[in-house]
């Protein structure tokens, strides 16, 4: 009897014991840094003495008054919105096109995925060469048609667009991949029924394809938005945030303050704002996803 009870306790609690290491790691890797960063953003840290001075909302007030912060936030917003929407439109068209039965479909599919396989640093270095106004390949082609070369990432007016184009080139395949998978998961029966009813191609897309593709669309958008919000490598390599601050994004600005100027408190406060923005946006998407699941 006693023996049985003992086994019962152990049986009951095994899951907790087995979870213990995970909980410990979570505490060490996420909870502790989170608490630490909340403390850090309310202070300014003097790394010379290691001394912390409590400033309360001081770092956030500084942010509100910091024109470079707003500039970085604006650039990040433009970058994210344009890159993700262009990637979505192209990715969806490609996915629709390559679900139809055409010859060489598989070859196309693999080819399209190639850019995604390259490390972002490599992509940045390649595009830096492609964009050279004098002997870069794009301007060379433009010259063939008598079009005056563009100064791409070196002009403050076109720098951000040039970087967005790089992102589109590299990450449209990702969009394409998820949407393609989504398209292929749609059953054929509704299409057959629609055809029998004599629906037009656009009607089929609007009433069947798109609604059934929505979960895939939401996931693709969510992942890309989270990814572009923290864009760093390409910009760091290609423009360093310039010219005239036209391509400085939040990640670059936070990096500068945190690692180059050792303003740990200020950098943490800005990262926190980024975290909140990311959480709010993702929650919007996740909620929609959940609603659809119930539906």
């Amino acid at each position: 009897m006693k023996e049985q009870l003992k086994i019962g306790w152990f049986e009951k609690n095994t899951k907790w014991l087995l979870l213990l290491p995970t909980i410990f790691i979570l505490l060490a890797l996420t909870i502790y840094p989170l608490i630490y960063s909340v403390i850090a953003m309310l202070h300014t840290v003097n790394i010379r003495t290691g001394e912390r001075t409590f400033v309360g909302p001081g770092n956030f007030i500084r942010m509100a008054k910091d024109p470079f912060f707003w500039n970085a936030l604006k650039n990040t917003a433009i970058y994210t919105c344009s890159a993700v929407s262009v990637e979505f439109v192209i990715g969806l068209s490609l996915a629709m096109f390559l679900t139809t039965k055409i010859t060489g479909r598989n070859v196309f599919r693999s080819l399209i995925l190639a850019p995604m396989m390259l490390p972002p640093i490599v992509v940045a270095l390649i595009f830096k060469i492609i964009y050279i106004p004098d002997f870069g390949i794009i301007n060379w082609f433009l010259a063939l048609f008598g079009i005056k070369g563009i100064i791409w990432e070196a002009s403050a007016d076109t720098a951000l667009i040039s970087l967005i184009l790089v992102d589109v080139w590299e990450w449209t395949p990702f969009m394409f991949l998820i949407l393609l998978a989504g398209l292929q998961a749609i059953p054929l029966d509704p299409y057959e029924a629609a055809e029998v009813d004599g629906a037009t191609g656009f009607q089929i897309f609007r009433d069947i394809t798109f609604p059934m593709l929505r979960p895939a669309v939401l996931i693709a958008l969510l992942l890309r938005i989270m990814d572009t919000l923290r864009i760093f490598d390409q910009i760091f390599i290609m423009t360093g945030g310039g010219p005239a601050n036209a391509t400085e994004t939040m990640s670059i600005y936070i990096y500068r303050h945190g690692f180059r100027f050792t303003n740990i408190g200020y950098a943490t406060a800005m990262s926190f704002i980024m975290l909140i923005i990311t959480i709010v946006i993702s929650n919007l998407f996740i909620k929609r996803l959940k609603i659809e699941e119930v539906f």
Binding site: D134, I151, A154, S155
Partner: peptide, 12 residues
Amino acid sequence: SPPGAESFNAQQ
């Protein structure tokens, strides 16, 4: 200077 100097570094 050549066009694009606004983004040149030592290597260019």
